[in-house]
């Protein structure tokens, strides 16, 4: 559906990231973790298409939808500059979202790199709420790029890696011993493509089921234009509709 949501707050977390909280009078519609929204960026004259942004969190208490935004161009910059009370036109919820694991007693690992940590917060919450046992492995360049750490900690153990060793293990998420050693039932991952590829390889090697959340560039967001396709074992699939979450068994990488 298309909604005009109101900005409840918009704060820069760190110089490159903004946390945008949106609300409306009516109860927000039901949304699943791993789904995304398409935001119309009215306050940037150079941004023509909508911008796909993951659902970072739904807070039922104050009826807010959280979007975690990394500023990389005009569109995301304009979103980070929104003011309390501004109206934002969004299409939501889009895409499939993560699939539920099977066993409640075996732990689950949620891996996020950079702003790819965004969908993992809500997924961690839903998993915990349903009685699963999630842990998080979050990677970033430096400790300032590790976002929402205390929010994550409420839903499970948090492991971190940083490239400059300012927090957690030095290097990439694939350097973390927990990825290689943990008794994971299932791994979910979102982040830069090389990172997702490396985690997928590790999961395959250890025969652990794994889902990745892709960020192919999009136009329509609803499966109509066929711009966002990923080449899979079933041929081209629309990441916006049949994804963004795909099982690594479907991927060609």
């Amino acid at each position: 559906m298309v909604l005009d949501l109101t900005v409840k707050s918009c704060e820069m977390i760190h110089k490159q990231y903004a946390l945008l909280k949106l609300t409306q009078k009516d109860q927000l519609p039901e949304m699943h973790a791993g789904q995304f929204v398409e935001v119309r960026v009215d306050n940037s004259s150079t941004t023509f298409l909508r911008r796909p942004i993951s659902i970072n969190f739904i807070d039922p208490q104050d009826n807010t939808l959280w979007l975690l935004i990394q500023v990389i161009g005009d569109g995301t910059r304009a979103l980070a500059e929104l003011q309390v009370g501004d109206l934002v036109n969004v299409i939501l919820p889009l895409g499939n979202g993560f699939s539920w694991p099977i066993k409640k007693d075996q732990p689950i690992l949620l891996v996020g790199g950079g702003v790819g940590t965004a969908p993992m917060l809500y997924w961690g919450k839903l998993l915990k709420q349903k009685g699963y046992n999630p842990s998080f492995l979050l990677g970033a360049r430096s400790k300032n790029d590790l976002l929402q750490l205390s929010d994550f900690a409420a839903f499970g153990t948090v492991y971190t890696t940083t490239e400059d060793e300012s927090h957690g293990v030095k290097g990439y998420v694939t350097n973390h011993p927990m990825l290689k050693e943990g008794d994971w039932q299932r791994i979910y991952v979102c982040g830069p493509k090389p990172m997702m590829m490396a985690v997928a390889k590790e999961a395959r090697g250890r025969k652990i089921g794994c889902e990745v959340s892709l960020e192919n560039s999009m136009a329509c967001g609803v499966g109509a234009c066929l711009c966002c396709v990923e080449d899979t074992v079933d041929g081209n699939v629309c990441v916006c509709k049949e994804g963004p979450v795909l099982d690594i068994d479907k991927l060609k990488w």
Binding site: T46, T47, F48, L49, N216, S217, M218, A219, C225, L226, C227, C228, V229, E230, D231, N236
Partner: peptide, 21 residues
């Protein structure tokens, strides 16, 4: 159709190369 990437945003428009998938 054509391989990804098939889309690029341009000033007030977009380019596509879907290729009749």
């Amino acid at each position: 159709g054509n391989p990804y990437p098939r889309m690029a945003e341009t000033p007030s428009g977009m380019l596509n190369a879907v290729g009749l998938q």
